[in-house]
């Protein structure tokens, strides 16, 4: 992926030198042409195109904003209830993610959505220990994490 970005920038500079147009507009034209040629020759690369990865990152950002708003509303409903009916609990969440940055990103996303806080990562980086504000629907929480955040991060990191 990084090789493709480097190649694209190199092609942009190549076109700038060929047309002797040393301005930002020349760079943008060269970059777009390089992107076109890289898409045309996508069979030669071992990894997938970096454009797809950029698209998954944008999708992840929008997913995070959506989850943030929804989870804030649910915590607001919990707080405004006249009777406190919540059951705080800890649970262990087994993750499929391997890399350091993936685990950090997943933990940050889980912590930033209200109702759940990551308190510890196990020594082998295989499971997260999460504190949840309302344990009546733990399975639902696990499913929502698995199907939203973890899936999106896996989508970003898949080669």
């Amino acid at each position: 992926m990084s090789f493709q970005i480097l190649l694209n920038i190199f092609l942009a500079f190549l076109l700038m030198f060929l047309t002797s147009n040393y301005s930002p507009s020349g760079f943008v034209i060269g970059y777009l042409l390089g992107l076109l040629s890289i898409v045309a020759l996508r069979r030669f690369f071992k990894t997938r195109l970096y454009i797809g990865r950029v698209w998954s990152v944008i999708l992840l950002i929008f997913l995070f904003i959506k989850e943030l708003i929804l989870a804030n509303i649910s915590v607001l409903i919990l707080v405004l209830r006249p009777k406190l009916q919540m059951q705080p609990a800890f649970f262990k969440y087994d993750t499929e993610l391997k890399e350091d940055w993936e685990i950090t990103l997943l933990s940050s996303l889980i912590t930033l959505t209200p109702g759940t806080v990551v308190v510890h990562v196990s020594d082998d980086n295989k499971s997260l220990f999460i504190h949840v504000i309302d344990s009546n629907d733990i399975n639902e929480t696990i499913d929502s994490i698995k199907n939203s955040f973890e899936k999106a991060i896996l989508e970003v990191s898949r080669s």
Binding site: D100, W101, I103, T104, S107, S108, V118, H120, V121, S122, D123, N125
Partner: peptide, 12 residues
């Protein structure tokens, strides 16, 4: 006691 500081270290 060794704790797993993966989040702190990566962020730092």
């Amino acid at each position: 006691m060794k704790v797993n500081n993966v989040i702190l270290q990566f962020t730092a």
